[in-house]
């Protein structure tokens, strides 16, 4: 596939060459076949620094087609630097349609959030992963962690949770909360808040994880069990918020804290900007939303 003929073909469609895409697709297929298993792949250098989503971008570039509709979020927001740059990148190199509406997207590339709106069949969620190995900070040797995955020796993961309870009285891990996929592999769900962990369980969408610097791809196919690790007497719990979103009044969503002044003023707003807007368009109002009509552009979302 080449870029449209009326422009000079500067890039192959979706930036990566076809052989590279084929290699990444093979890795993705293997990852889907073994849910939660980290498949090594020959990660390429991308025109962005490591840590900006080079893994996610390569996965997206390998699966995107001309008919796809792409949505990119960064911590839930469509309007932050990382999301805007990656969206612009794919507009430029693949000429695909982009959207900010979760329901309209066929591919959602995300940095550290899962959209509030439940994903549907046929959608693909691509995660940008900094460190794919959940055991890394407990066992620094890669040879040893691979062996532990192979032999299903996951006692060490509970040592971390034990330490949390011993020090804080409860499991204080709030992000990158380890999960067990389909009863076999322990997986790092990338640094998403643990609030999002239940959304991964039996999700109807395909979930792909790409770690560019660490050269690993892993996946959770649709309708797969994803269980958060816990203790019998300290079961897994998600974060709870005392107040609703200050703009849309939404409850049961993940909220960001925004500092308003240096007098201790703060507000809590939806981290998922698209969800917040749709609620405001539907007439929902939080206590700081103002009286005028619903904001028309995402720049007023105010998550920064």
């Amino acid at each position: 596939m080449n870029a449209p003929s009326d422009t000079i073909a500067q890039y192959n469609f979706a930036y990566l060459d076809e052989q590279t895409k084929r290699m990444i697709r093979r890795a993705i297929l293997k990852a889907i076949a073994i849910p939660g298993y980290q498949v090594p792949f020959a990660s390429r250098e991308m025109p962005m620094p490591y840590g900006w989503g080079t893994g996610g971008v390569q996965v997206t570039a390998s699966i995107i087609g001309p008919d796809d509709v792409l949505k990119v979020i960064d911590q839930g927001a469509d309007d932050t630097t990382n999301a805007v740059s990656i969206r612009a990148f794919f507009q430029k190199v693949a000429h695909v349609a982009v959207t900010t509406h979760t329901a309209d997207a066929t591919i959602v590339q995300t940095r550290h959030r899962i959209p509030e709106e439940p994903l549907k069949e046929g959608q693909v969620l691509v995660y940008q992963v900094p460190i794919p190995e959940p055991l890394r900070f407990l066992e620094p040797r890669e040879t040893e962690t691979r062996k532990m995955h192979a032999l299903e020796e996951y006692g060490l993961m509970h040592v971390k949770l034990y330490e949390d309870i011993a020090q804080h009285g409860h499991i204080a891990t709030t992000f990158a909360y380890p999960v067990k996929v389909e009863g076999r592999y322990v997986m790092d769900p990338s640094p998403t808040p643990k609030f999002d962990n239940p959304k991964m369980h039996m999700s109807r969408a395909l979930q792909l994880f790409g770690a560019g610097r660490e050269k690993r791809i892993y996946a959770v196919p649709p309708h797969t069990r994803v269980e958060s690790l816990d203790f019998e007497d300290h079961p897994f719990e998600v974060q709870r918020f005392d107040e609703p979103c200050a703009l849309c009044g939404g409850m049961d969503v993940y909220l960001d804290e925004v500092i308003l002044d240096d007098q201790g003023g703060r507000m809590f707003v939806c981290s998922d900007t698209d969800h917040c807007e749709e609620r405001r368009d539907a007439g929902h109002r939080g206590h700081l939303a103002g009286e005028d009509g619903p904001p028309s552009s995402i720049s007023e979302g105010g998550t920064q």
Binding site: E153, G155, L156, H158, V159, Y162, I165, D230, F231, E232, D233, H234
Partner: peptide, 11 residues
């Protein structure tokens, strides 16, 4: 650690 390694899940 050894207890957790053999599957004890009760803190």
């Amino acid at each position: 650690e050894r207890l957790m390694a053999v599957g004890d899940r009760h803190y």
